[in-house]
Simulated scan of single mutants.
Amino acid sequence: MTHSEQVRRPAGKRERLATAAARVLHEQGVEQTTLADIARAADVPVGNVYYYFKTKNDLVGAAIDAHAQSLQSMIGALDALPTPQERLKALLDGWIGQRELTARYGCPTGTLASELDKRADGLDRAIAQVIGALIDWAEQQFRAMGRDDAHELAVALVAAYQGISLLTNTLRDPELMATEGRRLARWIDSLA
């Protein structure tokens, strides 16, 4: 998933805080991030954070919502393309376009999902829904290509992306993502 929707600066303080939370949590991790870090990134006085979010978990939940909104915006743009193959390959292009960011911090949604899985507060299920929405969208694309195995293909696509995101980040090598993206594009073409 991309940071492009998260880079724009929303007008309201609550929205700025949620957007900043998504970015800072991605860059620093959940446990290392303080409310003050997020307030500073959102250009909001730290005392105002509590007006909008009572706890850090509330702010993490808002960051998850920001990821979901970013995904929906991205899907809306992809759905404007004429064929499912073009939509899937444009998704890959978006991932490849974020390879430098991924090399530094990993996948924004996948990294957060991995961190939240270690906690017992239920936020892991909320981020899982975001990843599930991406799988569902990819499944629709494969189904539109006439594939009976659309669900399995969608899971394979997202799994490949998450795996290459982990390797790209671990090895700090953005070209790994570009190479895998090209391979996945050929794979999509072979399925038509």
Rank of each mutant, 00 (worst) to 15 (best):
G132R: 09
E100N: 12
A192V: 09
D117A: 15
I96F: 00
G76K: 03
L123Q: 04
P10M: 02
L191G: 01
L134A: 15
G94E: 08
T34L: 07
T179K: 08
F53R: 02
G61E: 11
M177R: 10
Q6A: 11
E86V: 10
W187C: 06
K13V: 04
T83D: 11
P82R: 06
S190L: 07
L167V: 13
D43T: 05
I96M: 12
L112Y: 03
I38A: 04
Y51K: 12
L59K: 07
A11Y: 09
R99I: 05
H3C: 06
V60N: 02
L153K: 03
L134T: 13
D173I: 00
A22C: 03
R40N: 07
T109M: 09
E180A: 13
N48C: 12
M74K: 08
A178L: 11
T2Y: 07
D149I: 08
H151Q: 12
S4F: 12
R8Q: 06
A22L: 05
Y105L: 01
A160T: 10
G106D: 14
G122M: 04
E115K: 03
T34W: 07
Y52P: 00
A120K: 09
L153M: 11
S70Y: 02
R14N: 01
L123M: 09
L123C: 01
T55F: 02
A113C: 08
W187Q: 06
G146T: 05
R183E: 07
L88A: 09
Q141L: 06
Q129Y: 01
Q32M: 06
Q140Y: 03
D173N: 14
L25C: 01
Q162V: 09
A120D: 13
Y50Q: 08
T83R: 10
L184M: 15
Q85H: 10
C107K: 09
A128W: 00
R182E: 15
L92G: 05
G106R: 14
Y161G: 13
